[in-house]
């Protein structure tokens, strides 16, 4: 690994925080994924902060703040008050302001995870807001979700299919869901997780690290 020899003399003192979005339908396990990601990134020495979007409450932020996994001051809620996807796509101003405020307050942040307020299969993140984004669906939501080819499933950087352990209880053909997820994604990454136990989450951490953290641990 080397750093480019550029014409300007001084390298950045700190490169700032990578911003990663986590979206997906209500109940798919976005907050649970957050709770699994937090200790893993902290264990790797990553300086982390969280933004959670909720429709009309601070439920998700308070849950993460109470979790004991992270300094509660590093968790900020955004109340979207309306269509949750608007705040991560059409007008991400609120989230941009919150991310800037976190970086101003915690000078050495490496990573800000931005959880969406939960939406349908059409939600996507603005690339003005995030550098990389994950879309979380779950097996219990039905094995037809990848076949429905929603914009979230098709255009995210990483598709996470959560709760794969529930497949036998909800009549889902897991091998078929794996196959159809891969087909819908046309070679782009898909990972299967069980965020209740943390199974599969290390691969999500590795994917984020490789994509946007680069030389950070």
């Amino acid at each position: 690994m080397s750093t480019a020899l550029n014409a300007l003399p001084l390298p950045q003192a700190h490169p700032g925080a990578a911003r990663v979005g986590i979206g997906g339908p209500v109940g798919s396990g976005k907050t649970r994924l957050l709770e699994q990601l937090i200790p893993r990134f902290i264990a790797r020495g990553i300086e982390l902060a969280i933004i959670t979007n909720d429709l009309a409450t601070r439920e998700d932020a308070e849950r993460v703040q109470r979790s004991g996994l992270i300094d509660p001051q590093r968790v900020i809620p955004v109340e979207t008050g309306a269509c949750p996807h608007t705040a991560i796509r059409e007008d991400p101003t609120l989230n941009l302001q919150m991310a800037d405020a976190l970086e101003a307050r915690f000078k050495n942040l490496d990573l800000i995870l931005i959880e969406s307020g939960g939406d349908n299969l059409a939600s996507t993140f603005s690339l003005d807001l995030v550098d990389y984004w994950i879309f979380v669906i779950d097996v219990a939501g039905g094995d037809d979700i990848p076949r429905k080819r929603g914009p979230g499933v098709l255009s995210c950087d990483l598709l996470v299919v959560n709760k794969y352990d529930l497949a036998p209880y909800v009549g889902v053909d897991l091998p078929r869901m794996r196959r159809e997820s891969a087909q819908a994604r046309d070679g782009r990454p898909v990972l299967f997780t069980n965020c209740a136990t943390g199974d599969g989450v290390d691969a999500v951490v590795d994917a984020i690290s490789r994509a946007v953290l680069f030389d950070q641990p």
């Binding site: 950045q12 490169p15 700032g16 990578a18 800037d100 690339l127 003005d128 550098d131 990389y132 490789r210 994509a211 946007v212 680069f214 030389d215």
Partner: peptide, 22 residues
């Protein structure tokens, strides 16, 4: 091209990690 961080290979196969200020 809208992204501030991105990892991709150049046409010569160099593994590049773009990391720009906001």
């Amino acid at each position: 091209i809208q992204r501030h961080r991105l990892r991709l290979a150049s046409d010569r196969g160099t593994d590049c990690a773009i990391r720009l200020e906001r």
